[in-house]
């Protein structure tokens, strides 16, 4: 059962139960819908971008523990970052989830997401919010992304 504990670490369980930045941003200038039709994860990511800086980021929605915790952790890690910094973080998150060596310093708390690498069917749950935030900042209007 050690693998299960790797996936469902305390941090994941905590962020699933008490997701951070789980709210709308009323004056968000970017947002996008994310959808994982296979398991029914659905979320909206809101971003307030000031020039190049993510001054606020939040999400709302429902889904499995992995998708909820990943979205919650994402909002915490991206707030205050520039778009370039956000890209660099996502690159490391993607690496750690697919079993590549990642920069632990850049990852910080996000390292808990590395547990999904043993569960290939769950990687898309963990990446949903990251794809969605990417779509949000890349677009001036509401768009939808799907991880299927």
């Amino acid at each position: 059962m050690s693998d299960l504990r790797d996936l469902y670490q305390q941090v994941i369980m905590d962020h699933n139960k008490n997701p951070r930045n789980f709210r709308e941003i009323e004056d968000a200038n970017h947002f996008a819908h994310g959808n994982n039709p296979l398991c029914g994860d659905k979320l909206v990511v809101y971003v307030k971008l000031d020039g190049n800086v993510i001054t606020d980021v939040s999400f709302k929605g429902s889904g499995c523990a992995i998708s909820m915790a990943s979205a919650s952790l994402m909002t915490e890690s991206l707030k205050g970052k520039t778009l370039e910094e956000a890209d660099a973080i996502y690159e490391q998150v993607h690496k750690t989830m697919t079993g590549e060596t990642a920069d632990r310093h850049l990852l910080g708390k996000l390292e808990v997401l590395s547990g999904v690498k043993e569960f290939p069917a769950r990687v898309k749950c963990a990446t949903l919010s990251w794809h969605t935030v990417h779509a949000a900042v890349d677009s001036d209007h509401d768009i939808s992304v799907s991880t299927e």
Partner: peptide, 22 residues
Amino acid sequence: GVHPHDVGTIFDQQGVAIRTGH
């Protein structure tokens, strides 16, 4: 309190194959 997709993964770890989804 447990999303069906998490149920599916935990069951699989115990060798129990079920369907989770719509």
